[in-house]
């Protein structure tokens, strides 16, 4: 199948959620396990991705291009790019994470999850609730019990040890 085009680079169109089209080399999308399987199984030239916003898709394609250019000599530059890549508002970061998970781009998924995790750790419960707009659905009774039982309330355990 793939042998039909020699020398010429194969082109693929990705269609984002708002019907915006992105034309790119097929070799780039092979970093995504999902797209790789799609391209390999049947000869497609256009793949609709209605669940992914165009804005998100732009970011991901930018990453795929950079990653394809990665060599041992520009490792440092790539690391800086990665750092900047996840330096976006939280909502956008989560959109990217979900899309990357769907597309199965494994290296980038690990990196995104680490970036989200970094925004949670070392913060108080109230701070995390605020950042992620999480409303507690516990009853006050449950809340007070949690503070005793669960690891945030490791302190609760500790009270016992000092007795």
């Amino acid at each position: 199948m793939a042998s039909s085009t020699t020398g010429e680079k194969k082109i693929l169109t990705l269609k984002g959620g708002d019907n915006e089209e992105f034309i790119l080399e097929e070799s780039l999308v092979l970093q995504s396990e999902l797209l790789k399987n799609m391209v390999k199984e049947e000869r497609v030239s256009s793949i609709p991705l209605p669940s992914i916003k165009s804005k998100t898709l732009v970011k991901i394609i930018e990453y795929l291009k950079k990653h394809a250019e990665l060599t041992p000599s520009n490792k440092e530059e790539f690391k800086n790019f990665e750092k900047e890549f996840v330096n976006v508002v939280l909502e956008e970061l989560l959109d990217i994470t979900v899309a990357v998970n769907y597309l199965k781009i494994n290296g980038l998924l690990e990196f995104c999850c680490q970036a989200v995790a970094d925004r949670i750790k070392d913060k108080s419960v109230e701070a995390v609730r605020k950042i992620f707009r999480i409303e507690s659905d516990f009853t006050p009774e449950e809340e007070s019990e949690f503070r005793k039982e669960t690891p945030e309330a490791f302190e609760g355990d500790l009270d016992d040890t000092t007795n």
């Binding site: 995390v128 507690s136 659905d137 516990f138 809340e143 949690f146 503070r147 945030e152 490791f154």
Partner: peptide, 9 residues
Amino acid sequence: DAAITSTLS
């Protein structure tokens, strides 16, 4: 840190 998230919701 993961344990603390159990009290979020």
